[in-house]
Lab assay of single mutants.
Amino acid sequence: KDKDLLKGLDQEQANEVIAVLQMHNIEANKIDSGKLGYSITVAEPDFTAAVYWIK
Rank of each mutant, 00 (worst) to 15 (best):
D2R: 15
Q13Y: 08
N15E: 09
G37C: 09
S39L: 11
Q13C: 15
M23T: 08
K1Q: 11
E27P: 13
L6D: 03
V20C: 14
A43T: 06
E16F: 15
L6S: 03
K55I: 13
V20D: 04
I26N: 01
K3M: 13
E16K: 13
G8H: 08
I18C: 07
H24K: 04
K55F: 14
E16L: 14
A19V: 07
D4K: 12
A50T: 03
G37P: 01
D10C: 13
L21M: 03
N15G: 04
V20T: 08
E16H: 14
W53V: 09
Q22L: 13
Q22M: 11
K55P: 06
E27N: 13
W53P: 03
L6W: 05
F47L: 05
D2W: 15
D32I: 06
I54H: 02
T41H: 05
A19H: 09
P45T: 14
W53A: 09
L6F: 10
D32F: 14
K3Y: 09
V42S: 02
Y38L: 04
E27M: 15
L36P: 04
A50P: 02
V51G: 05
A43V: 04
K1C: 14
A50S: 04
A19Y: 11
K3T: 08
L9K: 02
A49M: 12
F47E: 02
D32R: 09
K55C: 15
W53Q: 01
D46L: 08
I31T: 05
G8F: 10
Q13S: 10
Q11P: 09
D10R: 09
W53E: 02
L9M: 04
L36R: 08
K3A: 06
Y38F: 13
Q22K: 14
L36Q: 10
Y52P: 01
D4H: 14
D46Y: 11
D2M: 15
V42F: 02
H24W: 05
L6N: 02
Y38A: 01
A49C: 15
E16Y: 15
Y52N: 09
L21I: 01
I18W: 06
M23W: 07
G37Q: 05
S33K: 15
E44K: 05
K7D: 07
D10W: 04
T41G: 02
P45A: 15
V17Y: 11
W53C: 06
P45Y: 14
D46N: 06
I40D: 00
L21A: 00
S33T: 11
T41N: 04
T48D: 15
K30E: 03
S33Q: 14
T41Q: 09
I31G: 02
L21P: 00
S39V: 13
Y38R: 00
L6I: 11
F47K: 02
L36E: 12
E44Y: 08
K30C: 13
V20R: 08
E27D: 10
L21H: 01
L6M: 10
L36F: 12
I18H: 03
E44V: 08
H24M: 05
L5N: 01
D10M: 06
T48W: 14
Q22W: 10
S33M: 15
Y38T: 03
A28N: 02
A50D: 02
Y38C: 06
A43F: 07
W53L: 09
K35P: 14
D2K: 11
D32S: 09
F47M: 04
V20M: 14
P45S: 15
Q22H: 10
H24P: 00
K30R: 08
V42M: 02
P45K: 15
I40K: 01
N25M: 07
I31V: 10
N15Y: 07
F47A: 02
L9C: 13
E12M: 10
D4I: 15
G8K: 03
Q13G: 06
A49P: 03
A50G: 03
T41E: 04
L36C: 14
S33N: 15
Y38W: 15
D46G: 03
L5G: 02
E27G: 09
F47W: 13
I54V: 08
K30N: 03
A43G: 06
V51A: 10
T48L: 14
S39R: 12
D32Y: 14
A28Y: 09
Q22E: 08
A14L: 04
V20S: 04
G37D: 03
W53K: 00
M23H: 11
L36M: 12
A43W: 06
A28S: 06
L21D: 01
N25L: 06
H24I: 05
N29E: 06
G34Q: 04
I31C: 06
F47Q: 02
K35E: 12
V20K: 08
V42G: 01
D2L: 14
K7N: 11
D4E: 15
Q11S: 12
A14G: 02
H24V: 04
A50N: 01
L21F: 02
I26T: 01
I40E: 00
G37F: 05
I54G: 02
E44M: 08
E44C: 08
K7M: 11
L9S: 02
A14N: 00
Y38Q: 01
V51K: 09
G37L: 07
L9V: 04
E27A: 13
K35V: 12
K3L: 11
I54D: 04
Q11R: 12
L36W: 13
D46R: 03
A19Q: 09
V42N: 02
D32Q: 08
D32L: 10
L21Q: 03
N25A: 07
A50E: 03
K30S: 07
N29V: 11
T48A: 14
Q11C: 14
A14F: 03
F47N: 00
K55N: 13
K1L: 09
N15K: 06
I31R: 07
D46C: 09
V42K: 00
A14C: 06
G34H: 04
L6P: 01
I40W: 02
K30L: 14
V20W: 15
A50F: 03
G34C: 06
W53G: 00
K55S: 12
N15P: 01
L5A: 01
E12C: 15
T41S: 08
V51C: 14
H24A: 06
L9N: 01
K3S: 05
N25Q: 08
Y52D: 11
T41L: 07
P45W: 14
G34Y: 04
N15A: 10
Y52V: 05
I26A: 00
F47P: 00
Q11T: 08
L36D: 12
A49D: 08
Q22N: 09
A49K: 09
A14V: 04
E44S: 08
V42A: 01
M23L: 13
L9D: 01
D32W: 14
D2A: 13
L36I: 06
V20N: 05
G34K: 04
N25D: 08
P45H: 15
S39W: 10
K35G: 10
A19C: 13
L6R: 03
S33L: 15
V51R: 08
Q22I: 11
N15F: 08
N29M: 11
F47C: 06
M23R: 12
L9R: 01
A49N: 10
F47T: 02
V17L: 10
K30H: 03
E16Q: 13
T41C: 11
G37N: 03
N15V: 06
E16W: 15
I26C: 05
I31D: 03
A19G: 06
K3N: 04
A49L: 12
Q13N: 04
K35H: 10
T48R: 12
A14I: 04
I26Q: 00
D46F: 09
N15D: 14
K30Q: 06
A28Q: 01
I54L: 12
T48K: 12
Y52G: 07
K3E: 05
S33A: 12
T48M: 13
A14S: 03
K35F: 10
T48I: 12
E12I: 09
I18A: 02
A43S: 11
I40F: 02
K55L: 13
L9F: 02
P45C: 13
M23Q: 09
G37H: 06
I40S: 00
V17I: 14
N25C: 13
Y52I: 07
